[in-house]
C-alpha cells in the first residue's frame, strides 16, 4: 500500500486517563486506504530529547468523516509532547505502514487487548463486524482506570473485562478470564495486542486449543519502513523487520512464542 507523509490537523484531543490521549486527525485531501493493524510514524516537534519518529497503531478510521484516530500513551518527553498538542495543531504523520491483521469473514473471533494494546483493536473490530463476524472483545488492565474505551466496542459485539486488582470485571490476568476457561473455544482466530508476556500467554492458549493467533508487536523502531533493520523480531525464517513484515504476525511464525514459550502475563513488560 502506498505510504504518505502528511501534515494532519488535530480535530480533537481527548484525555482518557492520566497517561492516554485519543487524537482525532483529518486532512484536506482524502486519507489514504488503510487496513487494521497498520501503524503511523509521527514526527515529534519541539522535544529536546526526542530525535526519532514515534510509532502508533491506527486506532480508528471514519471514511465518511475523513478522520483517523491515534491512541497515544505518554511514556517519555516525545509522547507527552504529542499528547499535549491542542485542537488545530498539525501533526506530521508517515502512514500507513506495515502489514495488518488477516480479516476473517462470517466467523466467530476474539480480540484481546492489554493496556494500550487496545490501540489497533477498534479499527479491527469495526472491520470484522462489517464482514459478518461474531466479535468478542476481551480487555485487560491493572486497574479500572487502565481499561480504555471499553464501551466503544459494544456496538461490535460482547465486551469482557479483567483487571489485576479486581476493580472492574473479573479479577486477575486477562489470560485467566473465564471466557478462556472452556477446553473448546468457539473462536476461529484470536487477535491480540498488548505487552509481550500477555501476548505470549494468549498465543499459548490459542495454540493449545488449535486456534490461529495473530499478535501485533511493538519493537523499538527508527525508520518504520524497512530501511534501518533495527526493529527485527526472530522468526522461524530469521530476523524480520516488525515495521514491514509486521507489526502483525501469526504467532506460529515467531521463534519462542508458542510451544516453548514461557507462560506468564503480567502487564508490566
Amino acid at each position: 500500500m502506498k505510504k504518505f507523509i502528511l501534515d494532519l490537523k488535530i480535530l480533537s484531543n481527548n484525555r482518557l486517563n492520566h497517561n492516554h490521549n485519543l487524537l482525532e486527525l483529518t486532512s484536506d485531501s482524502p486519507l489514504p486506504p488503510m487496513v487494521p493493524g497498520q501503524f503511523a510514524e509521527v514526527r515529534v516537534d519541539g522535544s529536546a530529547t526526542t530525535f526519532l519518529r514515534r510509532p502508533f497503531s491506527i486506532h480508528r478510521i471514519d471514511k465518511a468523516a475523513n478522520t483517523m484516530h491515534l491512541l497515544i500513551k505518554s511514556v517519555g518527553d516525545g509522547t507527552r509532547n504529542i499528547s499535549n498538542l491542542e485542537k488545530g495543531a498539525l501533526l506530521n504523520v508517515m502512514f500507513p505502514l506495515g502489514k495488518g491483521f488477516t480479516l476473517k469473514q462470517n466467523e466467530e473471533v476474539l480480540l484481546v487487548g492489554g493496556g494500550c494494546g487496545v490501540a489497533p483493536l477498534y479499527f479491527l473490530a469495526d472491520q470484522l463486524h462489517r464482514k459478518g463476524n461474531k466479535v468478542s472483545v476481551l480487555i485487560g488492565g491493572r486497574s479500572a482506570g487502565d481499561i480504555l474505551l471499553a464501551n466503544e466496542y459494544r456496538s461490535f459485539g460482547n465486551v469482557y473485562i479483567s483487571t489485576e486488582d479486581g476493580t472492574l470485571g473479573e479479577k486477575g490476568m486477562v489470560t485467566s478470564h473465564s471466557l478462556l476457561k472452556p477446553e473448546k473455544l468457539p473462536f476461529s482466530v484470536i487477535y491480540c495486542c498488548g505487552p509481550d508476556g500477555m501476548m505470549k500467554a494468549v498465543a499459548h492458549i490459542a495454540e493449545s486449543r488449535g486456534i490461529e493467533c495473530e499478535v501485533s508487536l511493538e519493537n523499538t523502531m527508527a525508520c518504520g519502513m524497512g530501511a534501518c533493520l533495527c526493529c527485527v523480531v526472530e522468526t522461524h525464517k530469521g530476523n524480520q523487520c516488525v515495521c514491514t513484515e509486521g507489526p502483525v504476525f501469526n504467532s506460529r511464525r515467531l521463534k519462542g512464542w508458542t510451544a516453548e514459550a514461557e507462560v506468564g502475563c503480567s502487564l508490566d513488560k
Binding site: F51, T220, C231
Partner: peptide, 17 residues
C-alpha cells in the same frame, strides 16, 4: 542474520545502532 534485538537506542540528536 545480523545481531539480536535490541539493535537501536535513541540518543541526544542521534541514535546508536
Amino acid at each position: 542474520d545480523g545481531n539480536p534485538y535490541p539493535r537501536m537506542a535513541e540518543t541526544p540528536m542521534g541514535m546508536l545502532n
